[in-house]
């Protein structure tokens, strides 16, 4: 084993220490009290971590990539199941998905209001900014509801059902405009 001060190999001493240990040596190295084991050599004087180290770095990068890949797969799985049952609402801007919202996110947007959040707040939270027309599609009866930006008001509510789905309701008339919202598109 070789022990060296940080930054450069200063002295080689055989000691029963492990990599990463901090040790103090007397008397020659007392001027450098903070010493870390920097390299480990085998009996033939070869560094035992050269190729091995490179392999581990590559493995580390691969593990990161695998985790990201798994995250995408889990996302796809969750979305496929959620969109099928309308438990996840897809928000589109010119046919491009900009957000996916589930009931827990809708609760958060509506400040824990049991009725649910206003449609205008949902669109703001999803990041929809420049649009003139809104199309809301439902899963229940396949209904589609169109409205213009001027028609938006705080009385149009994404009413939360107990099972994680939401309906579009006009609070003034208590009429259900879209049952089980699955998609909101802005144009």
């Amino acid at each position: 084993m070789v022990v060296g001060p940080v930054g450069f190999v200063w002295k080689q001493i055989s000691l029963p220490v492990r990599k990463g240990d901090r040790c103090k040596l007397e008397p020659a190295l007392l001027s450098h009290p903070a010493l870390f084991v920097t390299e480990i050599f085998n009996e033939r004087g070869e560094i035992v971590q050269g190729d091995d180290f490179r392999k581990r770095v590559i493995t580390g990068v691969l593990i990161v990539l695998v985790i990201i890949g798994c995250a995408y797969l889990i996302e796809k799985g969750f979305l496929a199941i959620g969109l099928k049952s309308a438990k996840v609402i897809r928000v589109l801007d010119e046919n491009k998905p900009i957000a996916y919202l589930d009931s827990r996110v809708l609760e958060q947007i509506g400040d824990q209001d049991p009725k649910g959040p206003p449609l205008i707040a949902v669109l703001n939270a999803a990041g929809a900014e420049e649009y003139d027309e809104i199309v809301i599609r439902g899963l229940g009866d396949g209904s589609v509801y169109f409205l213009h930006r001027e028609q938006l008001n705080n009385k149009l509510i994404c009413s939360l059902n107990g099972n994680g789905t939401a309906d579009l309701i006009d609070q003034r008339t208590s009429q259900v405009l879209v049952k089980l919202i699955k998609e909101i598109e802005v144009k």
Binding site: I68, L101, R104, V105
Partner: peptide, 16 residues
């Protein structure tokens, strides 16, 4: 059963 607002952007994007 907490609201996972960070998932609004997608788990894949969040992991990146």
């Amino acid at each position: 059963k907490l609201p996972m607002v960070f998932l609004t952007l997608g788990l894949g994007f969040t992991s990146i």
